[in-house]
Amino acid sequence: MTRRQLTDKEWGYVEPYLPIGEYGPYPKKLREQFEGVIWKFRSGAQWREMPAEFGAWPTVYNRFRQWRDAGVFENLLEGLIAKAAERGEVDLSLVSVDSTTARAHHDAAGMRLD
Protein backbone atom coordinates (compact mmCIF):
# COMPACT_ATOMS: atom_id res chain seq x y z
CA MET A 1 0.00 0.00 0.00
CA THR A 2 1.37 3.39 -0.91
CA ARG A 3 1.90 5.88 1.84
CA ARG A 4 -0.39 8.89 1.88
CA GLN A 5 1.13 11.68 3.90
CA LEU A 6 -0.93 14.29 5.65
CA THR A 7 -0.88 17.64 3.94
CA ASP A 8 0.35 20.59 6.00
CA LYS A 9 -3.24 21.83 6.21
CA GLU A 10 -4.46 18.46 7.54
CA TRP A 11 -1.58 18.31 10.01
CA GLY A 12 -2.52 21.82 11.15
CA TYR A 13 -5.91 20.44 12.24
CA VAL A 14 -4.48 17.35 13.94
CA GLU A 15 -1.38 18.64 15.74
CA PRO A 16 -3.09 20.72 18.47
CA TYR A 17 -4.93 17.61 19.70
CA LEU A 18 -1.79 15.54 20.27
CA PRO A 19 -0.34 15.95 23.75
CA ILE A 20 3.39 16.42 24.18
CA GLY A 21 4.64 15.31 27.57
CA GLU A 22 7.73 16.50 29.39
CA TYR A 23 9.83 13.58 28.11
CA GLY A 24 8.39 12.96 24.68
CA PRO A 25 7.46 12.48 22.01
CA TYR A 26 9.84 14.73 20.18
CA PRO A 27 7.68 17.16 18.20
CA LYS A 28 9.51 16.36 14.95
CA LYS A 29 8.62 12.66 15.34
CA LEU A 30 5.01 13.33 16.34
CA ARG A 31 3.81 13.72 12.77
CA GLU A 32 5.51 10.57 11.48
CA GLN A 33 4.14 8.58 14.43
CA PHE A 34 0.62 9.83 13.78
CA GLU A 35 1.00 8.98 10.10
CA GLY A 36 2.21 5.53 11.18
CA VAL A 37 -1.03 5.01 13.10
CA ILE A 38 -3.01 6.11 10.05
CA TRP A 39 -0.96 3.75 7.86
CA LYS A 40 -1.65 0.83 10.20
CA PHE A 41 -5.41 1.25 10.12
CA ARG A 42 -5.64 2.10 6.40
CA SER A 43 -3.52 -0.89 5.42
CA GLY A 44 -4.99 -3.41 7.87
CA ALA A 45 -1.46 -4.70 8.42
CA GLN A 46 -0.03 -5.81 11.74
CA TRP A 47 1.94 -3.34 13.83
CA ARG A 48 5.12 -5.36 13.20
CA GLU A 49 4.74 -4.81 9.45
CA MET A 50 4.94 -1.03 9.76
CA PRO A 51 7.58 0.54 7.48
CA ALA A 52 10.59 1.94 9.34
CA GLU A 53 9.91 5.44 7.95
CA PHE A 54 7.31 5.89 10.72
CA GLY A 55 9.75 4.96 13.45
CA ALA A 56 10.04 1.78 15.46
CA TRP A 57 6.70 -0.04 15.45
CA PRO A 58 6.63 -0.56 19.27
CA THR A 59 7.07 3.19 19.74
CA VAL A 60 4.25 4.01 17.32
CA TYR A 61 2.03 1.36 18.91
CA ASN A 62 2.69 2.72 22.41
CA ARG A 63 2.01 6.25 21.21
CA PHE A 64 -1.29 5.07 19.71
CA ARG A 65 -2.26 3.43 23.03
CA GLN A 66 -1.42 6.62 24.94
CA TRP A 67 -3.49 8.72 22.55
CA ARG A 68 -6.37 6.23 22.67
CA ASP A 69 -6.38 6.13 26.47
CA ALA A 70 -6.20 9.94 26.68
CA GLY A 71 -9.25 10.31 24.41
CA VAL A 72 -7.26 12.08 21.69
CA PHE A 73 -9.16 10.50 18.79
CA GLU A 74 -12.58 11.35 20.22
CA ASN A 75 -11.48 14.94 20.90
CA LEU A 76 -9.99 15.21 17.41
CA LEU A 77 -13.21 13.98 15.80
CA GLU A 78 -15.37 16.36 17.85
CA GLY A 79 -13.03 19.25 17.08
CA LEU A 80 -13.04 18.58 13.36
CA ILE A 81 -16.84 18.34 13.35
CA ALA A 82 -17.03 21.67 15.21
CA LYS A 83 -14.69 23.33 12.68
CA ALA A 84 -16.78 21.97 9.81
CA ALA A 85 -19.93 23.27 11.52
CA GLU A 86 -18.37 26.75 11.79
CA ARG A 87 -17.89 26.69 8.02
CA GLY A 88 -21.46 25.46 7.49
CA GLU A 89 -20.26 22.11 6.15
CA VAL A 90 -22.11 19.83 8.56
CA ASP A 91 -25.16 18.16 7.06
CA LEU A 92 -27.24 16.60 9.81
CA SER A 93 -29.56 15.04 7.26
CA LEU A 94 -26.89 12.37 6.91
CA VAL A 95 -27.16 11.40 10.58
CA SER A 96 -29.10 8.24 11.30
CA VAL A 97 -30.02 6.77 14.65
CA ASP A 98 -31.63 3.37 14.70
CA SER A 99 -32.70 1.21 17.56
CA THR A 100 -34.27 -2.18 17.41
CA THR A 101 -35.39 -4.31 20.30
CA ALA A 102 -35.96 -7.98 19.72
CA ARG A 103 -37.12 -10.22 22.47
CA ALA A 104 -34.98 -13.33 22.74
CA HIS A 105 -36.16 -16.72 23.88
CA HIS A 106 -35.29 -17.33 27.54
CA ASP A 107 -32.98 -20.20 26.50
CA ALA A 108 -30.89 -17.69 24.54
CA ALA A 109 -29.48 -16.31 27.80
CA GLY A 110 -28.70 -19.76 29.14
CA MET A 111 -31.69 -19.75 31.45
CA ARG A 112 -33.44 -23.09 31.83
CA LEU A 113 -36.91 -23.39 33.24
CA ASP A 114 -37.60 -27.04 34.01
Rank of each mutant, 00 (worst) to 15 (best):
D98Y: 03
L113G: 09
G55F: 02
H106V: 15
G55K: 03
V97P: 00
M50I: 14
A84F: 10
V37A: 06
R48K: 11
D91R: 06
V37R: 03
N62V: 05
P58E: 12
L6Y: 10
Y61P: 02
F34W: 13
T7F: 04
R87M: 15
S43V: 00
G24L: 08
A70S: 09
L92M: 11
A109M: 08
K9D: 10
E53P: 03
Q66G: 15
R65E: 09
G44K: 07
F54E: 07
E86P: 05
P19L: 05
W67V: 01
K40M: 08
S99V: 15
S93I: 02
A82G: 01
R87L: 15
A70E: 14
Y17S: 13
E49T: 05
E89T: 00
G55Q: 08
R3Q: 04
W47R: 02
E74F: 08
V95G: 01
E32R: 09
A82M: 05
L76R: 03
I81A: 05
T101C: 11
Q33E: 10
A82V: 02
F73M: 06
D107K: 09
F64I: 00
E74N: 05
D114C: 03
M111H: 04
E74W: 11
M1W: 05
L76E: 04
R68D: 12
G110I: 08
R63I: 06
E89P: 00
K83S: 02
G24Y: 03
N75A: 10
G55R: 07
L77M: 10
D8V: 09
W39V: 03
Q33D: 03
M111I: 14
H105E: 15
Y26R: 14
D114Q: 03
R48N: 12
A56H: 14
Y13E: 11
L113Y: 14
K29P: 00
L30M: 10
D114I: 10
K9V: 12
G24Q: 01
Y61S: 05
L77I: 14
I20Q: 09
G44A: 01
F64T: 01
T101G: 08
L77K: 04
K83T: 01
D107E: 09
T7H: 06
E15V: 06
R42D: 11
K40F: 02
M1R: 14
L77R: 14
A82T: 06
M1H: 07
H106G: 00
R4S: 03
R3W: 09
R3I: 06
V97N: 09
G79E: 01
R103K: 15
T100F: 01
L92E: 14
D114L: 06
V37T: 10
D69M: 10
G21T: 05
G12L: 06
E49C: 11
E53C: 12
E78F: 01
L80K: 07
R48G: 13
M50R: 10
E22S: 11
E53H: 01
I20N: 07
G12K: 00
G55N: 08
G55L: 11
R103E: 13
E22F: 08
K28C: 02
R4P: 02
R68G: 04
Q66A: 13
P16E: 13
E10I: 02
